[in-house]
Design a protein around this nucleic acid. Structure first.
Lengths: 401, 401
DNA sequence: ATGTCGGCCTGTCGCCGACAA
DNA sequence: TTGTCGGCGACAGGCCGACAT
């Protein structure tokens, strides 16, 4: 008998700007459960130190050149003006373009001065799960080899894929799925074999090689209301960014980060940052409420805590426990009073498989035994008061130097 | 008969750091005849506006957001500390990493105060041609198709390629050639056919697809003393940088450029820039002597001039003539007295094929009728005196704002 | 239910000289 | 001298059910 061949005529969608909820859900599925991105209207703290760390991680080299002191506060209260979720063209690495507006007014400790959660702030901003069905599958060696196609788990094929054309000899149908760039991929979905199984054949290997998928990576499908499909990818091991193009020096980038934040604060204008959750060692834009909630707790030496990590093998997040062994500022000259990764910690588990950071920020851990802070004592400490919400946010912003 | 197969076992060289003269020559061959890069020790003028234009061209979008006035001079006299010639990993686009040290002392008009050409400055810094033989060939459709190999012009094969192993049935030999990344490519050089001709067969198509070569691109071979070979590429049409990875926003990059230059001047320290001749519309690091020579000429309205361009079809540089139709500052608020592309010009030829810029800088053109400037009159002009070498270079560097 | 494999067909790659410009 | 082409052999891509887990 004659085998049918199919062509892959992927093309860019013409309505690129229209990014619906399904796109957002796909983006979050590709980013993973631990990635948190604020939404427009949220109140957040922006940590320049974390932003600098992302650039260092991206440039893949430590930029330890002397930097001027910009007199930037270590955390900057901002309103999120605009968020755009995107993916890198060549690697499909997810990133978010976030436009921030610094809050010019510093606020005191009286409740009515603080921004209330009502005005757009939300502690758990994960988008509400629509009833759009989706599934993901870890790719097997057979899935990614050139020898054959993609084996679709039966239940997921029944739920998420359009119904097959039963008139064809082996039931089959062409799938069209958009990726995060709006590019359309075409696959031949067929139900055949003995025993019967669902397969993606034509078009699949093109997808694998274009996305540079290997066994262990996650492939994600989403289906919307009117049968439109989305497809995305989450890699098991993120490729190291050795392809960092050389536009400006790492040193200049650091200057640029500090200067644009400083400029935005000084003039009350917006500035734009790129958050790359798979490049950054830690998020540098933290929800106001999350920060405030963690500020209530006491993280003194000896405190036991847990922290979530991306599961290496199982691709599921898992928790690891540890103990706070020290509290100190990383760079007390440049960033006085900074809480950015101010906790030195010791991990319980033999950290053979995962390399975990030796320093974490208070808001990125969960305390096991909740100890509330005694505020009255804190005010007499000489140490920087990391989590005192009554402290002015911008102590000495404009200073000639 | 049996056909021999060959493997391409390219690997990175272990002595990456050792970049000899041949590497430099290869880099310049790939960059093209119009690309000029200073050498360590040279005295140059750095034009921040040109640097900003390069970033704009790279980001492929105009960044017209308001920028603070950094009170940077429009041209900054620098000493070149270090130059590294490199190529982009994925595209092979050549670029230079240049470390500059601002000259802190402003100098008057007396000759002994000016830096003399003796201290390392050279007007024509093209490396002295060694007698290493080389050749380049524009690739034909047959060369780049998957149907066959690469046809080597006979004379060049005789001159530049190692002698063939005549004992083999058709004379043949394996070539090993390093590219700008130190990666070794292996080709089968064979002399066969009726009539006899030199061909590169095995390994060639891998090279073509890896470098993404198309018909019309230039392929360049160099041979050094001890038979080591180098291979490089110059594209007919430079690929547009749509792959610009999003690390920091274009606005922040502009901040970074200005801030790092300002910081370097203020503290007397070095700063590093990347010069991408195929991205930039115009070079923004100009030799001191070249600038000074052009400053002697008069480029008033009506002046006839010529300018070199990269030949579109013949891949050779060609000249186009034009007339100066205006002299004005692009941005007199941010860059007072700037000469960067201050000449509005009208081109003679029907500019159908080439899109030439409507604004050029005085030092990038050659006047046809040399008119020397009358300095005494110039001093009475109200307009910015673009080319007055007696003006202080850093008029008001530190100003609080 | 689905991962891997042998079987086998087929399209493309790429080496060859013929031929012509 | 060298660009293009027809010829053709080798090989990898990729669709199929068998079989095992």
């Amino acid at each position: 008998f004659k085998r049918s061949r199919c062509l892959n005529d992927g093309f860019h969608s013409n309505n690129q700007g229209e990014k619906d909820d399904l796109y957002t859900e796909l983006w979050h599925a590709c980013a993973g459960p631990l990635v948190n991105v604020p939404r427009a209207g949220d109140k957040v703290f922006y940590f320049p130190q974390g932003h600098m760390e992302q650039v260092e991680a991206y440039a893949n080299k430590e930029v330890t050149v002397e930097m001027p002191i910009y007199n930037l506060p270590s955390k900057i209260l901002c309103k999120v003006v605009y968020v755009q979720l995107k993916a890198e063209a060549y690697t499909d690495e997810v990133f978010a373009q976030i436009t921030l507006l610094p809050e010019v007014k510093s606020f005191g400790s009286s409740p009515q001065d603080r921004p209330s959660p009502e005005d757009g702030t939300s502690l758990y901003p994960s988008p509400q799960k629509s009833n759009a069905c989706s599934f993901s599958k870890r790719l097997t060696p057979s899935d990614t080899s050139t020898h054959g196609g993609f084996s679709v788990p039966k239940r997921h094929a029944d739920e998420c894929f359009p119904s097959l054309d039963m008139s064809q000899k082996p039931p089959a149908k062409e799938l069209v799925a958009k990726d995060l760039h709006g590019f359309e991929w075409r696959f031949r979905h067929i139900y055949r074999g003995q025993p019967k199984r669902h397969l993606l054949t034509c078009g699949w290997s093109t997808f694998v090689s274009a996305k540079k998928l290997v066994a262990g990576d996650l492939c994600i499908f989403f289906r919307g209301e009117n049968e439109e499909l989305y497809v995305g990818v989450r890699r098991a091991t993120q490729p190291q960014n050795n392809t960092s193009t050389s536009v400006i020096s790492g040193h200049s980038m650091q200057h640029g980060i500090l200067a644009s934040a400083f400029h935005a604060i000084s003039t009350g204008t917006m500035f734009t940052v790129y958050y790359r959750p798979w490049t950054s060692p830690a998020a540098f834009i933290i929800h106001y409420d999350l920060y405030m909630k963690s500020a209530e707790n006491d993280y003194s030496v000896g405190t036991r805590f847990r922290m979530q990590f991306e599961g290496g093998e199982e691709q599921r997040s898992s928790r690891f426990a540890g103990t706070v062994v020290g509290i100190e500022n990383i760079d007390c000259i440049r960033w006085p009073g900074s809480e950015w990764r101010c906790l030195k910690v010791k991990w319980d588990a033999p950290s053979g498989t995962h390399v975990r950071r030796e320093r974490v920020s208070p808001w990125s851990i969960e305390s096991i035994e909740v100890k509330k802070k005694n505020t009255s004592i804190l005010h007499h400490q000489k140490k920087p008061r990391p989590s005192d919400p009554s402290a002015p946010v911008f102590p000495d912003l404009i200073r000639d130097g």
